[in-house]
């Protein structure tokens, strides 16, 4: 697929993520920070968010299974998830983390478990869209590189 078509596909996906309230303006800030000095900046940040999020959600589940829940520790993990969500512009996940921290303060295991289910669903939904986005970005980069090589070959032949 040509780079232009992939760009359209990428824009449509990102616009849809904004329309669904999954992302906020911070994601646009990230896109603006990507330049020739850091061409993979967005994919690096998104990949870190996906890896961190999965690790933190697993840890939260483990903490909440314990007979005596350490709510300060749970809160600290939720704080981390909120921070990385805010960094990447993951609005829905970030807002759910805010609710989650309220349940931590109330020392409510039920509240924490319900919110964990919600944040898990939202995170994996967002992650699958981010993964689709990264695939398109990779294909676009490959397509651009291929065209550059073809142009260089054509120029060499003429």
């Amino acid at each position: 697929m040509a780079a232009a078509a992939l760009t359209n596909q990428l824009n449509a996906l990102v616009n849809n993520m904004f329309a669904m309230g999954l992302l906020d303006d911070q994601f646009q800030q990230l896109q603006m920070l990507q330049d020739s000095t850091a061409p993979d900046f967005v994919s690096e940040v998104v990949t870190l968010f996906c890896d961190d999020g999965e690790r933190i959600i697993c840890e939260l589940a483990r903490q909440l299974e314990k007979p005596n829940v350490d709510f300060d520790r749970v809160d600290s993990y939720v704080h981390q998830l909120k921070g990385s969500s805010a960094s990447v512009g993951a609005q829905k996940v970030k807002n759910t983390c805010i609710q989650f921290r309220e349940f931590c303060q109330q020392r409510s295991r039920d509240g924490c478990l319900k919110t964990l289910d919600l944040v898990r669903t939202e995170f994996y939904d967002l992650r699958s869209k981010f993964q689709a986005m990264l695939q398109i970005m990779n294909r676009k980069a490959e397509s651009t590189e291929k065209k550059k090589n073809c142009d260089a070959e054509a120029e060499g032949a003429s």
């Binding site: 920070l33 850091a38 940040v45 968010f49 961190d52 921070g83 990385s84 960094s87």
Partner: peptide
């Protein structure tokens, strides 16, 4: 402490 935040702050 968070790598994701360091990456972003460094770029800013």
């Amino acid at each position: 402490d968070e790598e994701i935040n360091r990456l972003e702050l460094a770029q800013v």
